[in-house]
Design a protein around this nucleic acid. Structure first.
Lengths: 144, 144
DNA sequence: TACTATATAAGATTTATTCCTATATGATGT
DNA sequence: ACATCATATAGGAATAAATCTTATATAGTA
């Protein structure tokens, strides 16, 4: 057991998740990219070590790790894109399981000033606050 | 020309977009839902009036209207989901065309307090600021 | 009214994700 | 160490979402 796999195991255990070699490899693969990999790129990376791993395992594991905050995500994919007729300033509460979206308003969020260094070479269309998590209905559904 | 189609036409013209009956119908369909419809639901709605409209037209038109800020979106879909190994507090700059994601940090965004009324019945996994727009590379690519 | 760049329809194709079912395995108690 | 069993996995099929291709049509403009 290398230092790195040991650390991955620890993280999984801390979150009450079973430790499997696949999960350890997936977690290390995500961490290995300094970027924002998609599931397939994680799959290809892990495949080198586990040629028989299935895509389903990768997808399931990534979702699980996201919900346990072991990793993050950027909310692309996973469902059809959702449009929004509301052009007034507002923000979103998003359930990661059922994808329900609730709007909320908060004046103090309406003029967030992004550091100008970040905005070089970029034309913003909008700046919003995303609260991502699990709605109570989904939480309850799992308990049942 | 009803009042509503007139308003939709005006909005399109203001943004320098050609006015076609399909675009007017799509814009009205999005506005008609008080919700966050996906492209297929817009397609089904518009199909009632234009039984021969193609999905491609709906997808193209929605993206166009999003870039011109005629409507918004919630960044689901449109590509594969992207994961993020960085578990420190940070925020994202996202290109709506090429999906490149850049991280940025800003202390003042790290403790945003969402109004508690919005957070009833919801367990947040994370709260972040999204800056969505078009990166310069994509902007330039189009000019060429 | 004619022209031309742009938009559209139709359907095929590609890409992303999830589902299904049989098998395997990690964690737990003995 | 061993049996148990809830949970995880592989493999591949199925579904869903988005995009591409090509021929045709049309909005804006001269």
């Amino acid at each position: 057991m290398s230092k790195k796999t040991g650390r991955a195991e620890m993280i999984l255990r801390e979150q009450g998740a079973r430790v499997t070699p696949q999960r350890v490899a997936i977690l290390m693969a995500v961490a290995a990219t300094g970027d924002h990999p998609d599931a397939d790129s994680v799959y290809r990376h892990v495949s080198r070590e586990y040629p028989h791993i299935s895509r389903d395992t990768v997808y399931r594991t990534l979702s699980m790790m996201e919900e346990k905050k072991i990793i993050g995500s950027v909310l692309f994919g996973g469902a059809s894109k959702r449009y929004d007729p509301n052009t007034r300033k507002h923000h979103h509460l998003i359930c990661l399981r059922c994808r329900r979206i609730n709007d909320f308003s908060a004046k103090k969020f309406d003029r967030l000033e992004v550091p100008s260094s970040a905005m070089e070479r970029f034309t913003a269309v909008r700046t919003t606050v995303h609260v991502e998590g699990i709605c109570d209905e989904c939480q309850d559904r799992n308990r049942a």
